[in-house]
């Protein structure tokens, strides 16, 4: 990513500036995919304590659930692993319509600047 492309909409840049501004921040990363997952491994979604977010880990199918879990991770200060897919029992609520499965690692940004 170049200087020009690293704008304020870049999730990782945004995560850093949110944290510097004193906000609670978590980062979600797609760590594994099976089948036709909409976003590749390494895709990021960053979330603040109020539920604001930037980036994506799917085509919009599971972001809501990830944001919910991320806000909780910000409160507990502990990372967690999430898994979504048609095999998931919540498939009808938050599943991937494409039939793929993904694992998303959610971790809070914790520590002094």
């Amino acid at each position: 990513m170049t200087e020009k492309a690293m704008t304020e909409r870049d999730p990782l840049v945004l995560a850093e500036s949110w944290h510097k501004a004193g906000k609670g921040v978590a980062m979600a990363t797609v760590v594994e995919t099976w089948g036709s997952a909409p976003r590749p491994v390494g895709s990021h979604l960053v979330i603040d304590a109020d539920g604001n977010f930037e980036g994506s880990v799917s085509g919009g199918c599971v972001e809501g659930a990830v944001v919910f879990e991320a806000v909780e991770a910000i409160e507990t200060g502990k990372p967690k692993m999430l898994e979504f897919g048609v095999a998931d029992e919540t498939a009808w609520e938050v599943g991937l319509s494409c039939g793929g499965r993904i694992r998303v690692y959610v971790e809070p940004i914790v520590g002094e600047n």
Partner: peptide, 15 residues
């Protein structure tokens, strides 16, 4: 993730 590591990562990307 520690903020220092995030900052190092963003610096590397910028450079």
């Amino acid at each position: 993730m520690h903020p220092a590591l995030l900052s190092q990562l963003n610096t590397a990307r910028l450079e």
